[in-house]
Simulated scan of single mutants.
Amino acid sequence: MTENVFTLTSSATPAGSDVAPQQLVANLGGENLSPDLQWSNAPEGTRSFAVTCFDPDAPTGSGFWHWVAWDIPASTTSLPLGVPREDPSLKQARNDFGTAGYDGPEPPAGPPHRYVFSVHALPVETLGADPDAPHIGARFAIFSQQLASASFTARYQVTG
C-alpha cells in the first residue's frame, strides 16, 4: 500500500539543483521570475494554499523571505513560471527586498545559500492577512494554521 504524500516540485528549479538563472535577480543576469510550482496529494480539509520562499543562510540572524503568497484556491495544484506581482488570484506580501511578490536570490559572495520553496495547505479559504502589512502577520497565520506543508530546497552561490 502506497501512502499519499503531499509533494511540491518545479521543472524550472528541481529539488537539490541550483536556482535556475531566470529566477535570479536582474543584476545577477536573471529575469527575477518565480519558478513554476506543482503540488499534489494535499491533505483532506484543505481550503486554500500559501507559498513561501525563504533563505535560511542570509546573514541577517533570521534569514531572508523572498516570497510569501496566500489565498490560493484549493482547486489550484500549480503556479506558472513568473507569477505577476499584481496577480488577482492570490495575495502577495512585501518580501524582505520591500516589494510585493517574488524576488529571486541575490546572496553576498561566499558559501552557497539554500532557498526553501514551500506550499502550505490551509484549512481556511481566506487567510485574513493584510498584504500591505509586514509579512510576519501572514507567515504567523500560515504557520499556525497549516494542515501540512511540502518543500524542496535549491541553492545558489555567488563566487569571487
Rank of each mutant, 00 (worst) to 15 (best):
V68W: 15
P107C: 05
A74T: 01
L127P: 11
F97H: 07
T2Q: 09
L81M: 12
P73R: 02
S151C: 02
T13K: 12
Q23W: 15
A100P: 08
R94I: 00
P108E: 00
A138D: 06
A93Q: 10
F6P: 04
W67R: 15
V68F: 11
T52I: 01
Q157N: 06
A74S: 04
L81Q: 12
S118R: 14
G45K: 07
A138I: 01
G16E: 05
H113D: 06
W65M: 13
D57W: 09
D130V: 01
L147K: 12
N4L: 14
T9Y: 10
A15V: 11
G101A: 08
H113F: 01
P80M: 04
S11D: 10
R47C: 09
V124W: 11
D103C: 00
Q92D: 03
S62C: 15
P123F: 13
H113N: 09
G104V: 08
T7P: 02
N27Y: 13
H120G: 04
F140C: 00
L127M: 10
A121R: 13
A20E: 13
G30A: 01
T2C: 01
H113G: 02
G104R: 01
P105T: 07
P105S: 09
P88N: 04
W67Y: 15
L90G: 12
G61R: 04
A109M: 11
T99E: 04
P43C: 10
T76A: 07
N4C: 02
L122S: 12
L24V: 13
L37R: 08
A141K: 04
Y102L: 02
C53D: 07
D57G: 03
V119N: 00
Y115Q: 01
T153Y: 03
R47P: 07
D36T: 10
G61Y: 02
L81R: 14
P131R: 04
F54H: 00
T126C: 11
G45V: 10
W70H: 06
S89P: 01
L28C: 13
P134D: 09
N27A: 05
A138M: 01
S149C: 13
W39Y: 14
W67F: 15
F143H: 08
V5H: 14
